Simulated assay, not measured.
Amino acid sequence: MAKVVAVNISATKGVIKEPIEKGYFAFNHGLEGDAHAGDWHRQVSLLSQESIDKMTASGADNLSAGKFAENLTTEGIVLYELPIGTKLKIGETEMEVTQIGKECHKGCAIRELVGDCVMPREGIFTKVLVPGWIKAGDEITII
């Protein structure tokens, strides 16, 4: 079963996000209170625990949910293999995959801290189609 491991938030861009108990994901906006939310195609970022574990296995220390600035840390689903346009039910929400990976910006705090960033290769981005709450433990279903 695919599920949410953590919901993570930050008030500014380019920094590590902190886990929160639950988050409200607004229609066509993203996680309320998060620096990356807004009316664009990368409203919500997702990265799997399996991707974080790969980084740990390659020698990175002290990695945990939110360290790669992802809004949702997931488990049990290979995110980067989902085609753009895939619809996901996550908690109360529905989202659509809009982008796979990204370019790391210069001065990326994550790359500097960890030495590499898996987000450009294995992270994905979605937009919110149906708003609602998401919390750790919520199931992720491909619609």
Rank of each mutant, 00 (worst) to 15 (best):
E21T: 12
T98W: 06
N28R: 10
V78D: 12
E92S: 01
S48L: 05
I110D: 05
V78K: 15
I20A: 14
K127V: 15
W133Q: 09
L31R: 07
E50A: 14
E32A: 10
L72V: 11
M119G: 08
V7Y: 14
E112T: 07
D138C: 08
E103H: 12
I110N: 06
P120D: 06
S58D: 03
S45T: 07
T126R: 01
G76Y: 13
L46H: 11
N71A: 11
K13P: 04
A35N: 11
I9Q: 15
S45L: 09
K89S: 11
Y24E: 02
N28K: 13
L46T: 01
E18F: 13
K22D: 00
I90A: 07
L113I: 00
C108L: 04
I90L: 12
E21F: 09
C108S: 05
H36V: 03
A26R: 13
L31V: 06
L63N: 05
K13T: 07
L129H: 03
T73Y: 08
E96S: 04
I52Y: 06
G33A: 07
A136L: 09
I124N: 11
V130R: 14
S45C: 13
G59K: 06
W133A: 00
I100W: 08
E21A: 15
D39T: 06
K17W: 08
E94F: 00
V4C: 09
T93E: 07
D39H: 15
T74V: 11
S10M: 02
E139M: 05
D116N: 13
I16K: 15
L47G: 06
E139L: 08
A136I: 02
K67C: 15
V128R: 02
V44H: 10
I124E: 11
R121A: 09
V44Q: 08
M1D: 08
A11L: 11
V97S: 01
V5D: 12
E21C: 01
I110V: 15
E96A: 00
G115W: 06
I9Y: 05
V128Y: 09
E70K: 03
T12F: 12
V5I: 15
A60Q: 05
A26M: 11
I77N: 02
L72P: 02
M55Y: 04
D34K: 07
V128M: 02
A37L: 04
K67R: 12
V4A: 08
L46R: 00
E70I: 05
V130E: 14
M119A: 10
T74R: 07
V5G: 05
I124Q: 13
